[in-house]
Simulated assay, not measured.
Amino acid sequence: MEFTAGGRMEVRITPSDVGKRVSVRRLADTGPASEKFTDTIGVLTSWNEGVLLITRRTGETVRIPESSLVAGKVVPAAPARRRGPAASFEELARVSARAWQPVESEPLGEWVLRAASGFTRRANSVLPLGDPGVPLDDALTRVRAWYAERDLPAYVQTATGAEGTQEALCAELERLGWQREVTAELRTGGLVPVGDVDADVSRVRLARSVDDAWLRRYQRFAVPGPHVVKVLSSGPSVWFATVPGEGDAPAAIGRCVVDGRWAGFMAVEVAPEQRRQGLATAVMAALARRAMEEGASAAWLQVESDNGGARALYEGMGFAIHHLYHHFRYSRSS
Rank of each mutant, 00 (worst) to 15 (best):
G195K: 01
E110F: 14
R56V: 07
E90D: 09
V24I: 13
A249P: 00
G84M: 04
P226G: 09
E315H: 13
M284L: 11
R83P: 09
T281A: 12
Y155C: 00
D151N: 14
A116F: 03
L313M: 08
L136I: 11
E91R: 08
V204D: 02
L129G: 01
G245W: 00
R205P: 08
L129I: 07
G318K: 10
D198V: 11
S105T: 13
G318C: 07
L191W: 03
A78D: 14
W146P: 04
I321H: 07
A199W: 03
G254C: 07
L287H: 00
D138T: 14
R25W: 11
G195V: 02
Y325W: 09
G130T: 09
R220M: 14
V70N: 02
H323N: 03
E174L: 12
R56N: 06
G254Q: 01
S234K: 00
P132F: 10
T38N: 09
V228C: 02
A296P: 04
F328S: 00
A162R: 01
E66C: 10
V62S: 04
P272W: 14
A77E: 13
A267D: 05
Q219D: 14
A99Q: 00
A5S: 15
I64T: 08
I54H: 00
D248G: 15
S237M: 15
W239F: 06
F221H: 11
I13S: 01
A162H: 01
V112F: 10
G72Y: 02
K20I: 07
G295F: 01
G161W: 04
G177E: 05
G72L: 04
E2D: 09
W111K: 02
K73Q: 14
G7M: 05
F3H: 10
T183Y: 05
G59Y: 00
A171P: 03
L27K: 07
G177F: 13
F319V: 00
G225D: 10
S117D: 15
R25Q: 15
H227T: 13
V204Q: 01
D198W: 08
G72M: 02
T55F: 01
P244L: 14
A154F: 06
F37P: 02
D138C: 12
K230Q: 15
S209F: 12
D17M: 12
R144V: 08
V134T: 13
V192K: 09
L287T: 01
F240D: 02
F265I: 01
Q302D: 13
P226Y: 15
E163Q: 11
G133H: 07
A312P: 06
A251M: 07
R276W: 15
S96G: 07
V95P: 02
A145S: 12
E66R: 00
Y155M: 05
H227L: 08
Q166M: 04
P272E: 10
G190P: 03
V197W: 11
A310Q: 08
E294T: 09
L127H: 00
G50W: 05
I253E: 05
Q166S: 07
W262H: 04
P236G: 08
V62Q: 09
R82Y: 15
S305I: 15
V201E: 03
